[in-house]
Amino acid sequence: MNAILILLERDLRAVLRARSQLYSSVITPLIFLVFLGAGVTHGLQPANLPAGNFTAYLVPGVIVMTLVFSSTFSSASYYRDRDSGILRIFLSSPHPARRILLGKSLAGVVIGVLQAIVVLAVAAPFVDFEWQHGFIAGVAIAVATMALTALLLAGVAQVLASRIQSMQGFHLVMNLVLFPLLFFSGAFFPIADVPTWLEILARINPLTYAVDALQLAVYAGDDAGFIGLWVDFGVLTALAVGVYALSFVRVPRLTWSGQ
């Protein structure tokens, strides 16, 4: 347990030190929210939104986008540690490799959730959320959704990192896999009235359930037109636990020479 906390703390410090990365992970989604939200609300006046204006609608999607950014950045620390050689020092300690990896990846989860909370906290005073379950419960549901989503994304990133040698290749695959998923998740437009093929894509997309749960927690006035919290949490929990566990099947080993 101690080894996990040591590496968790060490990676958190590394993120706090990399200020530009920290700020861009939070500011980019907020800029997205301000410009896209304001532009679409005033220019297109979408009438099909379940509640509120488009900026409010965008917040859950932008939170999920923040989690996607964060998981990508956090996983990059695996490559940095591998390339600087310090990963070998961690692996040459008496602790099992899985414990070392768990400490590092939990740092990514914590950072992702904290960044997502910042986005929610900055956006909330400026948009009209319904808080249909009340403010406290709404925040609790939102944070739980963020944690499950961050765990799922950390698992996906770790599975990819264990199989892709170069950081460039890793970023390419993460972008190819996760950003399309973001667009078919209801993050930027409702999926209720989209063509069938797009709705099918959305339904098999794990991020859809994250966006849906966040919308139900903060944005929606009622459940009409949404998937539902129980289904969202069922899917997210199963996937997060499954993928995260799967990501520990293949872990890096101590090698004496090179990587």
């Binding site: 590394a14 030190r17 600087s84 050689g85 070998r88 020092i89 020479s257 090179g258």
Partner: peptide, 13 residues
């Protein structure tokens, strides 16, 4: 205690 042939220090700390 181990010292590897290649550098294993974290250069940003």
């Amino acid at each position: 205690g181990m010292v590897f042939q290649e550098s294993t220090l974290d250069p940003v700390t």
